[in-house]
Every structure is written in C-alpha cells, then in structure tokens.
Design a protein around this nucleic acid. Structure first.
Lengths: 330, 330
DNA sequence: TGAATCTATCGAAACGTTTCGATTATGCGC
DNA sequence: GCGCATAATCGAAACGTTTCGATAGATTCA
C-alpha cells in the first residue's frame, strides 16, 4: 500500500507538501499540486485514516449502540442520527452491544476509537458507562436514568404515554386491567408502569396483584404472560402490554384460544411498531418519536463535543394511537 | 488522557515493559506486573486503540454496509455476521451507505479503517467496489454480480425461489399472473424475474406485457403498481410481487377497493419478512436464509483475510412458504 | 543595493502504540 | 568468587499522518 511518502518521492517534493497539497491548501503552487495528484493516481495512493486519527486525536466517527439491531424501530432512530451526524461531517456506525458487554463496546468506547456515542441498551452497566464517559468521549443515553459527567440523557415520555393510554382504556369502560411489564432493569418499563398506576389511581381503580405480570419485552414473554392470565379466572377486561412485541404475543395466545379482541378482552401496547397496523385487530398503542429521538440525541452529542458541559435531559412527547384493539366495553 | 508512557513512569519501568506486561507476557515478573496494574488503575489508563491499529496495521474490525438499516430482515443478517465475527475476535460495525456514496464508505473503506467488509447495497457503484477492494481489504458482496480480485460473492437462490413460488401459483390454477419487479439495478430483482418467466415458460403460459410492472421494492411502489393494475381490465388472476414490502402495498390498495385476496386475486411476495405472518390474509412468500447469509459471508471474509485468494461464489437455498394469500382458483 | 516582504517548500517532531535486539540483574555450578 | 545461562527489563525504531517553525528564492521598495 502506497503511503504519502511514496507519493512525495514520486512527485519529487516533501511529505509535508503532499499533505497540504491534498487538502487544496493555496500555499502550494498549482503546477506542483498537479504533479502530486498524478503521483497519487499512478500509485493508487489512499490516505491512511488511522494515522490521521492518531495525529488528529479525533476520529470524526460516532457510535450508536443498540442492544439488538433487530429492534423494530431502531432504523428510524438511526435515520435521525444519521441525518444530523452527516451534516456535521461525522459518520455514525452502529454496533451491537449484546449482553451489555462485548468486543465492540471495548474496542470503540474503552479504546477510544470514536469521538462519542449514543447508547440505547438497558443492559450496559451503569458503572461502565460512567467510567468510560469523559471529556473526549461524551455519551448520550436513551431511556436511561444515569447521572454523571459527560453523560447526557434523552428519553420519550413513557410515563405520560402510559398514563394516557391507560386513561383511554378506562374511558372505554374497562376497569379490571392487567399490566404486563418489561424487564426490571429497563427504566422505560418502570416509567410505563408508573404511568399505568398513576392513571388507575386517578380514576380511583384498585390494582389487582394477580394482574401485574412481568415480561421481558419479547413476543415470547407476552405469549407466556397471556397464558398465565388465562390460567386464572376471572379474566381481566383489558390488558396493557408494556410494549407492542408482548402485545403481539398476547394476541397470538388469544387467537389460539379463540378469545376475541377487543370483544372479550381489550388490548393495548406501546411503541407503535409497524406491525401494529397489520395485526388483527390493529393495535392501539403509544407512538414514540424515534426519528426525533435520534436527531435530538445527536444534536446533544455535538453540543457536548463542542464543549458544552451540562445539558439538561430532554423528554420527548409520546402520542396515543387509537386503533381497534381497545374497543369499548358495552 | 493518560498514555502508556505515564503508566511506565508511575510504575518506574519502561514503556516496553508496560506494553508486554499488559498482555500477560510471562517475561515480566509478577510483582512488577502488579505495580503496573496499580499505575493503570490510579491513572485510569486506557490503551489507545488507534495507535495500536496503526502499529499493527490492522483493526480487527469489519464493516457491514446496508443500503438502509431499516430493511426488515437486516437484523438477522447482522446476527449471523456478528456470531461468526465474534468467534474470530472481530467487531462488526454496521454502517449505512445511503445513495451508494457517503462519508462512511469513504472513511471506512477508502481510508482503510476496517480490515474487510460485507456489502448489501445494489446502489454502490461497481467501479468503486473494484477499486477499493484489495489484499488488505477483501469485500464480500451480497446479491451482486461483480467479479474482481478480492471481491467475493454470496447470494440466495432468488431465481430458484421465484421459479418455485411461481410454479406454486400455477399449480393452484392461476394463469394470468402479473409480476411487480424491483429496481433495475438490483440483481436479485432481475433473478426473481427470471425465475418467474422460467416457470411460466415451463408451464407453457404466455406473459402479458401489461402485467409486467416495475417497482422499487417499497410498499409505496407496490401500492402504485396495484393501482396501475386496477386501472386496466381484466385483472390478472394472481400477482407475484418482487418482494414482501410491495406485496403489502398491493394488499393495502386492494383492501381500500374491497378486492379480496385470494378470492378475487391471489398474491405472493418474496423475502418472508416478519410482517407476512400478520397480514390479512397471511402472505405466501419465499424465505431467504438471512442469518445464514450473514454467517456464510463472514466466513468467506475470514478465509479471504487468511490469504485465500479465490473463493467460489456461494448460492444459498430459498424455500417457498405457503400461506393463505395464494389460495387456489376454483 | 540592501533590507524587507512574500511565496513555495522543506525537515523534524509528535500522536501512542508494539517489537526487536540489546542490556543488565539474578541464580547456578564449581 | 568466577564464568555462564537465564530471567527481567530497557531503548529505539517504526507505523503514516499533520503541523510548526525554518529556509531558500523571488519580488518589492526606498
């Protein structure tokens, strides 16, 4: 692989001249620049980005860590990130942080191979995040509640959304409402639960313990939760699944047992993933502004990169999307 | 940020000793290693990966380029890549190559910031790919038909899958079959068309020109294609949409006009994205082994990285998944 | 004509590692 | 207490850039 030194020799100039010529510095005469360009051509020279990163002490690269890339709305998030990052001349790269620890985390964050990162993963340990964040590596956390220097936060209004969709169920006449929660580590799951209980209390409805079930945000666990509910009686009048995936699991369990939604039991989810429009019945849910989450997080990252030290956490509004599954209780 | 030099000073040893001590080299005495570890601790030292990459002339990082991260089955692909990459001590990073050119492409491929890459993007220019590939940067292309040194190929059997699903339609009694194709740049789209025509020919059924419509693999374009078909008469008896997204668009158009699937028109797609199980009716389609595509591609990448120069292209089998939408013509 | 200014280019240090060959310290047998 | 093998550590070069200060030559001006 040809280096800048080879180019310099070929063009009969010094390395430094090549370096500045390549960035169209007006200090170098046009004729020599041409000569250098020819040398670049004929040698097939490509600058070594790593050497540049080392010298420059920055990479112009930021990472987005997702717990699993499969998440159905991550693509929108990444779009948001990408749009903002590109306008700053940065390349976002997406990495998977399966299990909260992993090669990528180590390599990109600990060993300083990126200038900053956006993290959406409830499983990455709080200590790790606090340790690794620093003036040369600001971290924007999504849906996490960690305080620390150079750690910034953006989240959607899970509590409000959950409150509103629960109110919707209550207004539709449902009272016995079951809640299927997310994994206990996930702050968003907790906030959704809080919104739920808030609305129930606001309406003066008591919670029934046996209607509170823990899942882990997978379709599988929604299915299991539905089984649990079905094994007891009486059934609740409605179910609030902590996210759409679990709601879909519930739907599957119900369709297997020929339980009609919403006639027999109403159902709502959270997230507004694309699938919710296509299930039978279509799912009432809470829309999260994923694209905006991406743009806002990235903007914050760049403000941090620019030296701003303290930036207040941002909470983005959610919106209830009413579809067929939450039908009224007659 | 503390460097290895700082650690060396603090521990009262030389830089080289620290370097080898940190990788548990038995040449350094346990007691000094402890001293060094303490220094690392107290200084909060983190190795600079970029410096290492420069020295080592490799990054242990590979890129996966996706045209848009939103693609509904990319996550499976990436899982496959990840599983193999991790077992080789590599971190895969995913980047978006919107529009075929972009900062990330430039930064990661041209400037040598990764050791190799897997590319799934019909829009990246052939010349670029051939230029950038080299002994230090093998490239594995998915669903592309580019020959070149250090360029390797993996694809699923689009033609066979299309052939088989078309045969299925024919066997169900459908004869007037419309085809909605993908963008002309996409080889997989072309192969699917070839499989389709092959089956039609095999059955001795003539193609009707007005039933051949071009889309671009988006739901939107499927919707538009359906409109086009609906504006003419008579309608075809069945539609083969070049991918599931477009099939879903067709479904939407039909449901707006109260056209029943499969009673009025049968419909099949391609890809077996998750949504196809949940549409009404569930969609007959062709399953692509995305996870396997990821693992195979990554294995090839590592073989190339290990010095193997020529590796034959691999074609993975697809499988027809029969669901309700392709019902028989009575 | 000589000093001053400008233009075009150069040399060398620096970024933070790794590694090779050299050097010093330690333990051993006699 | 000597030479010798072995263990432990060190110094310096290298990876490929960027940039700062220096230098040489050309141009201007009084």
């Amino acid at each position: 692989m040809a280096t800048i030194k080879d180019v310099a020799e070929r063009a009969g100039v010094s390395v430094s001249t090549v370096s500045i010529a390549l960035k169209r510095d007006p200090r170098v005469k046009e004729s020599t620049r041409q000569r250098i360009l020819e040398a670049v051509q004929s040698l097939g020279y490509r600058p070594n980005g790593i050497a540049r990163d080392l010298k420059m002490q920055q990479t112009q690269t930021m990472a987005v860590f997702l717990h699993d890339l499969g998440g159905p709305f991550y693509s929108e998030l990444v779009s948001g990130v990408q749009d903002v990052a590109l306008s700053h001349g940065y390349s976002p790269i997406v990495a998977c942080s399966v299990g909260g620890k992993g090669v990528a985390l180590e390599r990109l964050l600990v060993e300083n191979r990126v200038d900053g990162a956006i993290i959406l993963d409830p499983y990455i340990e709080e200590d790790f995040i606090r340790q690794v964040a620093g003036p040369t590596l600001p971290l924007v956390l999504l849906d996490r509640d960690i305080e620390g220097s150079y750690v910034y936060r953006v989240t959607s209004d899970h509590e409000g959304g959950a409150f509103n969709v629960t109110m919707h169920l209550l207004e539709m006449g449902h009272r016995q409402i079951a809640f299927i929660g997310g994994p206990s580590v996930s702050v968003d799951g907790q906030l959704r639960f809080r919104g739920f209980t808030g609305a129930m209390k606001h309406f003066g409805v008591d919670l029934e313990k046996r209607f509170m079930i823990l899942g882990d945000f997978t379709e599988q666990s929604g299915y299991a939760a539905a089984q649990t509910l079905l094994s007891q009686s009486p059934l609740p009048e409605a179910i609030f699944a902590g996210n759409d995936e679990m709601a879909i699991g519930v739907l599957r369990a119900f369709s297997e047992r020929s339980i009609r939604v919403p006639e027999d039991i109403a159902l709502v989810g959270f997230d507004d993933i694309r699938l919710t429009q296509h299930t039978t019945p279509a799912l009432t849910t809470v829309h999260q502004p994923m694209y905006e989450l991406g743009t806002v997080a990235t903007q914050i990252l760049f403000r941090a990169l620019a030296g701003e030290e303290t930036i207040a956490p941002v909470i983005l509004e959610t919106r209830v999307v009413i579809r067929a599954s939450s039908g009224s209780r007659q």
